[in-house]
Amino acid sequence: MSFAHPFVLALTLLAVAALLWGLRALDRRRSADALAYSNLAFLEAAAATRVPWPAIVAGVWALAAACFGVALAGPHLVAPVAVRDGAVALCIDTSGSMSATDVQPTRADAALRAVRAFIDSVPDGTRISIVAFSSSAAVIMPASDDKDAVRDALARIPAPNGGTAIGDALDVAARSLPPVRHRAIVLVTDGVNNAGSDPLEVAPQIGATGTTIDTVGIGTSGSGLLIPGTSEEADLDESALRAVAEAGHGAYARVGDADALARRLSDIARSTTVEPRRIDASFPLAIAGGTIMIVATFGAFGLGRFP
């Protein structure tokens, strides 16, 4: 939090402290007019209430005064704000290794479930496109803010088959994004790039346009599946995925089960569709102070503090 007029804050807080001190002194001076009772300890023990009302009233007044003081100082917050007009491209790996069952029920089904969670989590108004890729990449759903249409499009994702063209997928995803200010690509894959363009060359170009790339590696090592046409085991090229994410100013994460994948995509949905924004908190604080002041005043009337 920063303040436009920090000296006003200091002065106001000093003024509030002086006011409270003055009120306290006045209250003490009034003790001469207070009802004299033979034995205050007996009265306290007999009629004491467990709720510290005097402290609560003083605390509420102090809070209201502090709200006004801070509001006068022009506070500014940098807070994550949901981007209503953002666009996200989901790149889903449909290579043959996605049929592996090390992630229950299969990597492909877990990915679909996670994509649904992603769609549920993004703010309304965010445009989502779906890109499926194996040996080549294709747009399954062009960018749309109609979440139902995007969910329906998931049915058109092909069954696992073929190689892994991560570079092509990134390129197609970048082209599917509309020219809006906030763009992001989320890549979900379980393999090593073995077809099409080199993702390590494509990613920096995309990153340079301001598009964020988040990568998620799915699957456990030693699934037993081979890369089609080779005798190599299907395993993640984590260093490449990490490098892609870095080039796209995003993050890489590896998940080993369906729930973790769904959680990760939900997190990405929230983080990639928000942006830090500087907010002037003066008005809300002044409103809060006023509300608290009204509540405190009525509360004080109720407690017999006034007139």
Binding site: R28, A34, A36, Y37, L40, R305
Partner: peptide
């Protein structure tokens, strides 16, 4: 409600809340 009460002996005073139950 909230009232200040003074101990006649010591002069010590306390702000106390007096509700119906009190």
């Amino acid at each position: 409600g909230l009232r200040r009460v003074r101990d006649a002996e010591s002069g010590r005073s306390r702000l106390l809340y007096f509700g119906r139950r009190a």
